[in-house]
Each structure stands twice: as structure tokens, then as C-alpha cells.
Design a protein around this nucleic acid. Structure first.
Ligand SMILES: [Mn+2]
Ligand SMILES: [Mn+2]
Ligand SMILES: [Mn+2]
Ligand SMILES: [Mn+2]
Lengths: 216, 216
DNA sequence: TTATATTTTTAGACAAGCCTAAAAATTTAA
DNA sequence: TTAAATTTTTAGGCTTGTCTAAAAATATAA
């Protein structure tokens, strides 16, 4: 239905739309590691196909159709990530690149059967919600550890940085999805955070605290 | 590593090489539903990359590298077909088109884990052998029913025609992989074949007999 | 063995998706 | 409010993979 490039642009615009409703050419170029001029070319094509709202120099937003397509790509991405971790025993830091390819397999019937085969999971290995076959999903209501009050207690439920390096670091520190933690102290000098987990104290940097999300 | 188009050309050349070692431009064009001029263009590129042996007007054959690549694509295709049938409960006539897309997912680690997950199957849903991770597989030694002697007895083990229409027909007649049959009679006038299966007589046309393979 | 038919290649063009360099529009700063 | 900086678009070009039409090579038939 849509080309690989079109799907990747729609996904990038969707992702950037989470932060600000109107997305700029340069933001898209950065997200896709391409050039602004290439982005402009594609934006004209996507607007032509009624997948985005676009007026020159004004940035873009997804149309309803565009958003539906984007959510469907995300559904496929996250279901394949779940499959790779739960069925093929990959680690959570190994699956993103493979899912980037697999998300473009087009059959709806295939993805619905895969969903059923795995028991209709609702979260991917990184804690992100998996849209159902209708495209419905509840957005996570999570906060970065750096933004919660002292003595707040919660469950590690997601990450902001999906890089292998970050995920491997978390794995090593046992800071994985589902773990219960308490924020003991935030050192004002450099925003280092002291956590309690499994009755032990643990120190994480400001950067890590910014990228690790908990449900209170 | 290789583009979608390159992989499809290599697979087509491999398939056509089964019949005759030197493959013609027109044969490839027909197999890929494209034009002879497009094939010539691609053949120059594949020769440049040392994937095929090509001299103008003389047809092509795969180099060792080219064959290795082709066998690997076939491994991926057949493993995904097996997955779709055995794990996602698709019927054998529904999986080919999906596998045509999935065979291009590049990760070797992924396909090896998938292989392990399914218990290292040796045949795909259509009876074709699945190459192992080293690319080794034993070619089927099968005969079309139309080519065996009267009173020969064997196991249905493969098909020559992979079309949905043919597979659905076989399904309806219960002529599926693993069934034991005996060739009772071949009517000389139109080569209609009378089989015995499950103690019942069954009549199939010359075309069906040509495309249904048995192991004696 | 020469003429004809068929196959294959070449020539030239096009769409998709990308690039660099330059121009135009917008934003920010003086 | 004008000047400078930044962002975005346009212009022109490149690669991949495709096409049609015409030319060249090969195969077949008289
Ligand atoms: Mn991912
Ligand atoms: Mn994920
Ligand atoms: Mn197949
Ligand atoms: Mn098959």
C-alpha cells in the first residue's frame, strides 16, 4: 500500500507529533538522518496523498488517515519486538533494528494472527503500549524518575532512550521493567538520584533518571 | 547487503537453474514478470558484483557466492512458510505471498533463532527441503505421479505448482503431503490417472498428475 | 547458404528517493 | 524596524530499477 520511505516518514512525523503538534522539516530530517531538501520533496508527496496537512514553511501534522497508518506501523513494530523477546529469546536491547525491518511486512491478517498467537500482549519489551487491531491503545502515563518527588515509590514501566547502550546499562543494574523502586534523594548539585530497590541503595546519573520512566 | 531486486533476481535464476544450467534473459523476464531489457540491465550489475557468470547473448549461471545468497533466501522463505502454517495456523495455500516479503528480512541471527524455535524443520508446508544454517539440504528425489509405473505405491511428498488454486484443489481431494497412494491406472487417451488412497479410488487429470510429486 | 524469425542488447526516458548549492521565507537580534 | 541568522524551499543532478522502441546478434528455415 505505502512505500518503505513513506511509512518511515509517517512514523517519524507521528513520533515527533507526541511532543509538539506541528512538526518542522528540520526535525523530520534529523529523525530520519536525511536532508531537509529530501524531506520537503517527500512532504509534497504525502500531502498529495492526503496523509499529512502541509503548507509551505508552516510544518506538518498527520491527517486522520496518516495517523491511522502510523499507528498501524507502530503496532507491527511492537508486536514483532514482543515476538523476538518472548518467543525467540532475544534481549530487549537487541530487537529494535530487526523490528525496523519487520514492521513493513504488510499483511494485516499476519499481524492479527501473530497478536493472537502471543495472547494479545498490551506492552512491548520496552514498556510501550501495543495498539490493538483497531488502533486503540492507552497512552502510558509515566514520569521520568528525575521528575518525581522525594520518597515517591513506583514501578519501572518504560524508557525514553531505546539505544542498545542504555538498555544494556539498565539490564546490568537490574533496572528492568516491572521493578519497584523508591526515590530516596536527588542531589541538587548535579541531579544525581539515589534510589532504593530490593532493599539496596543505587545511584543513577541525571541522564539515566531522565530516560527511565516510572508509574506511580 | 543485497537489494530487494537483486535478491529476487538471484532467486529466480536459482529456480530456473534447476531445469537447465544456463538461464536465458527471456526466461528470467517471464519468471519475474518484467521486460527482457530490464533483465539485461540487472544482469550487468549482478555480474559486476560477481554473483553471476554472464557473457552477452550467452545466458547466465550463478557463481558460488550467488548460489549461496540464493539458497539463503530460499531458507528464509521456507522457514517463514513453516512458521506461518505451524505457529500461526495459516493454510498451505495462504502463505507464499507473505513469505515473499518475509524472506527479505536480513538478520541471520533472527532466522537461526526462528529455526531453533520451530525445532529445525527439514521440509516446508509444500514438502520442499529447508536448507540448514550452512546452506546444506538434500534435494528431493521425487517423481510426478504422471511418470511412475502402474501399481507403483508411494507417499505424496511435494508439488510442482504452488498456486493457491492447485493447493486448494489438493486440499479438497485430501491429496496432502504424507498421504500414501497407489497408481492404479493411466488412461492412455488423455493420461487421466486413477489412484487408490485410503482404500478408495480417485481420478485426477493429466495436469494434476504432472504437478503432484511422490516419493516411491 | 542466404533469408527470416527470434532473442538479446542498446538507447533514451521516467519515477522514486536521495544529494548539494543557491534562493526565498521566516525568525531573532540589534 | 531594519539587519543578520536560521529555516525551508527550489533548482539541478545522481542512482536504482523500470519501461518502449530500435538495433544487433543469434537461431531457424527455405
Ligand atoms: Mn523499537
Ligand atoms: Mn519498543
Ligand atoms: Mn513459497
Ligand atoms: Mn513452499
Amino acid at each position: 500500500m505505502y512505500t518503505l520511505a513513506e511509512e518511515n516518514y509517517l512514523k517519524a512525523i507521528y513520533k515527533l507529533s507526541m511532543v509538539a503538534k506541528n512538526v518542522s522539516t528540520n526535525q523530520i530530517a534529523a529523525e530520519l538522518a536525511t536532508k531537509a531538501s529530501s524531506v520537503t520533496d517527500m512532504l509534497r508527496k504525502l500531502a498529495e496523498k492526503l496523509l499529512i496537512n502541509y503548507t509551505r514553511y508552516q510544518g506538518v501534522s498527520l491527517t486522520q488517515t496518516g495517523e491511522k497508518v502510523a499507528v498501524n506501523i507502530i503496532r507491527r513494530h511492537r508486536l514483532w519486538e514482543y515476538f523476538l523477546v518472548e518467543k525467540l529469546n532475544f534481549k530487549w536491547d537487541e530487537v529494535h533494528e530487526m523490528a525496523e525491518e519487520m514492521e513493513h511486512i504488510s499483511s494485516t491478517e499476519l499481524i492479527d494472527r501473530l497478536d493472537e498467537f502471543m495472547g494479545f500482549p498490551t506492552r512491548d519489551p520496552h514498556g510501550d503500549p501495543i495498539p490493538d487491531s483497531q488502533g486503540n491503545f492507552k497512552q502510558n502515563d509515566l514520569k521520568p524518575i528525575s521528575a518525581v518527588d522525594i520518597n515517591a515509590c513506583g514501578i519501572i514501566s518504560g524508557v525514553r532512550d531505546h539505544s542498545s547502550a542504555f538498555l544494556q546499562y539498565l539490564e546490568k543494574k537490574q533496572l528492568t521493567i516491572g521493578k519497584k523502586i523508591t526515590v530516596k534523594e536527588i542531589i541538587t548539585y548535579d541531579n544525581t538520584v539515589i534510589l532504593q530497590m530490593d532493599n539496596k541503595d543505587l545511584q543513577i546519573s541525571r541522564d539515566v533518571a531522565n530516560n527511565l520512566l516510572i508509574a506511580l
